[in-house]
């Protein structure tokens, strides 16, 4: 997995970012104006491992900020900013303090936010919340391929929920998404 040090190395030549990271170190609240402007200030080019420059820069800005500013970045973020916070969460030294952000994202009806809430940081979600989130993905048509550790975590209660969902869909003459069907078959064998 990509680490903060990888991102630092990749963006070491971005002078504007380097200056801004210094600014945030001196004055943490400056992140409130810099975080939203990341795309315009540092660029949006794709980097390696599925990161873009603005996402990586946002992760580094958050890594240099107190937890309160991380929570504010999400609270006041537009969708791209919220996605960047969710992506950065597993890299940040904030323990469980980011869990309410996942819960917030999972309450939305925005497929991008729901999908982003089920990355590696979702290991910190309680099993009940995680199962509901997976079921919500199936319901919304969010591909399960993006769910971190899906196959390891899929347990009997999730299987029951999926089976009930599939029965309901079949009764209505509607299709069951293939990835959900596959997961169901696979957990039935186990």
């Amino acid at each position: 997995m990509t680490t903060l040090d990888d991102l630092r190395t990749t963006l070491a030549g971005n002078e504007r970012l380097t200056e801004d990271l210094d600014r945030v170190r001196e004055k943490p609240e400056a992140v409130g104006g810099l975080f939203p402007a990341a795309g315009r200030r540092y660029g949006r080019e794709p980097l390696t491992d599925g990161w873009t420059t603005d996402e990586a820069a946002r992760a580094l800005l958050l890594a240099g900020s107190p937890t309160e500013e991380v929570l504010n970045a999400y609270r006041y973020g537009d969708t791209a900013e919220k996605l960047a916070v969710l992506k950065a969460l597993p890299l940040l030294p904030i323990g469980d303090d980011g869990v309410p952000l996942l819960e917030d994202a999972l309450r939305t009806n925005d497929t991008r936010l729901v999908a982003a809430a089920l990355g590696p940081y979702a290991d910190r979600l309680e099993p009940d919340a995680w199962r509901q989130a997976v079921l919500k993905c199936v319901f919304m048509g969010v591909p399960l391929a993006g769910v971190h550790r899906l196959h390891e975590r899929a347990d009997a209660p999730l299987k029951d929920m999926l089976r009930a969902f599939a029965a309901e869909r079949e009764a209505a003459g509607r299709e069951v998404p293939l990835d959900a069907r596959n997961l169901l078959d696979e957990t039935q064998e186990a």
Binding site: G32, P36, A37, G39, R40, Y76, D78
Partner: peptide, 11 residues
Amino acid sequence: DLLPRYLAKDG
């Protein structure tokens, strides 16, 4: 006082 946060948004 909260407007500057929003006026910094891309959208």
